[in-house]
Nucleic acid binder design. Structure first.
Lengths: 199, 199, 199, 199
DNA sequence: ATTTAAACGAGACGGTACGTCGCGTCTTTGT
DNA sequence: ACAAAGACGCGACGTACCGTCTCGTTTAAAT
């Protein structure tokens, strides 16, 4: 992820004392910790401040809302999407799908994401930051994987890549968070076949 | 939907003054109204009570939380899923997909659902009620549509219906609420083809 | 006490079902019970109703307020003021003083009276009922005891009886409820001497 | 009165923002204002907060109950007990009695005191604070006046001063708040004579 | 014996206030 | 010069009772 500061407020002027990076990181850690313990709804700025040994004002100095704080916390920790390019585009695509499953199935993705999205419904700025820092990079990586499959001929050249990305992520998101169906080991393969139109 | 009372508390014994059904319905209406205006986050029980001309205690008497109230409000109003059986299972399936698009694209589905889901992450009882009153009936109707297609031979007999349901709903949910891609008129057809594995 | 019904509302017309006297008495008993347990402030009509196995409406049908209920409950139970006339007016007066000490020192008098008085500060009707049903009869009996002492010559004929009554009851009330000085066995005698001006 | 903070909660550590004393005083003023208007029973914390332009939380931060608030308000305003020592102990005692009459006859003493006392029946901590901040200083001043009279020989050396204090204050309290007899101009003299045992 | 009207239990209702919590802002003070 | 500590105005929370109001269901006097 290029910009770790996600939705943080604009940078400070150059004079005077600089940001205390140790405290900064501690706040993000505490945020994730409490997210997993209490959920987004019960995650309070006061609790983060108390647990991180920081004053509330310090948090507000660097993030303008709970959603901005959570968005950055998620973005910094959910960055494990690197899938090597092996030369077998079909296998690479399968591996990428598996990464998505792991991401959404993990505690942070499963707990924080829905609440964050709910907050962003009425917050266009917040959504834009989320999109640029989180969504776009991931979709770009996934789209590249699909495009490599297209080049091998397993998918037609006029494939609607965007739609396949939505099917891919949507099916996983929905199964884990909404229908709460069990996640079988074969899920990645099943999805792979659906995406490739194999029957 | 069989049980309109969704997550409402258990019914009272038979003696004593009866529930004021007019007020009850008014509360649900007001809840939807405010959901569209203010969003789930800014929907307060106090505001619902004030707008519906009802006391807070009356709301808390019948619903044990905001999510229970919203769940019932959504369940009672999002019931427009009836798709006729025309004899052409493929066309019926397409029509069902279109209904899903319309549901999630509508204000209530789009605004309230994500927040509701976020609240239900840590509320197993609430999720169960949501599942039984909302999710299961819809999935059952959709599964029937897929099964009719299987009978025509357009899908193999060993098709994983549950997975197709997640792909179907998940793609739409994700596109509308997360990636926020435009909803083209051809979306239902495109999804239909993916579900049926047509290339 | 002539009228036990204190501040109860006016009686009903003659036809139809009559008052359930058993329940009536039970309500008064429960009121006293809860007064001693919880104090006036925490005595709620709902608790009385629940404990007495009676509906709130029944209580409100017969008493117009908590203070009316408590006033009647006190009046019916605090009536133990009969002091025999022995022929020794000085000894009779001492015995009467001792009764006052016992009344205010008892749980009901000590707990309920101050709160009741506080409620009556802004309730002229309530105060009038309290005065007629409680205060006047007691003062009359006490005044008679003083007048018998005057006849013996132990007090001058122009003694301000009303003031002595206030001194008598006030000193006891104040010592028990406000200054909370210990109540020694000799208190009645000490007060008797002060009232009679003996040094 | 030595400690103006009466029943307020214990003081905070030294760091951080300090108490807003202007608001603090305004709350006490408003409390007295509303006491005279509405009486203790109808004095609500919400009303005090609204009228004082202060949040409820601020009131609860510094006083733990309505009775604590009222106790401090009374203690800070009812301090007008200074009676000069003229060299004529009998006249000084009479003046002190008159001050007591004025205190209990005034709106605050008459309205708030009974209700406060009622609340303190079940609140030992509250009573102790009231005793130390209000009762003891006044009794001490009054006891000194009596002792000076004893020194002149108008009262015997073994006089029970505590009992005289209860007679003095109790008679006035009872006459004003309970028997509600008229307060004649000669009351102070009459009481003086009773206390001194003059007939 | 039947009628009839009030009393009654249960409890829903619109209210008011409670005492608490967290928000986001703002001093104040120690480092 | 920071930040921690934390007071503050604010608004909503969920609860407790208030006093009133239907509801059937007794119950006992008047027919």
């Amino acid at each position: 992820m290029p910009n770790q500061r996600a939705q943080a407020k604009s940078p400070r002027p150059s004079t005077g004392r600089r940001r205390n990076d140790r405290a900064h990181r501690c706040i993000l850690d505490t945020t994730l910790e409490l997210l997993e313990t209490a959920g987004y709804h019960d995650l309070t700025i006061e609790a983060v401040a108390a647990r991180a040994g920081v004053s509330k004002a310090t948090i507000y100095r660097w993030w303008r809302s709970k959603s901005a704080l959570v968005a950055e916390a998620i973005a910094t920790r959910l960055d494990q999407g690197r899938v090597p390019i092996t030369g077998d585009p079909r296998a690479d695509l399968r591996a990428s799908i598996q990464v998505t499953i792991d991401n959404y199935g993990g505690s942070v993705g499963g707990i924080a994401l829905p609440a964050l999205l709910a907050d962003l419904v009425f917050d266009q700025d917040g959504y834009n930051a989320f999109r640029e820092n989180f969504l776009v990079p991931r979709r770009e990586a996934s789209a590249a994987a699909i495009r490599r499959v297209i080049e091998t001929g397993l998918l037609p050249a006029d494939t609607d890549v965007e739609l396949l990305l939505d099917v891919w992520a949507g099916a996983i998101f929905y199964r884990i968070l909404i229908s709460r169906q069990p996640i079988s080991p074969g899920l990645a393969d099943d999805l792979l076949r659906i995406i490739l139109g194999e029957r």
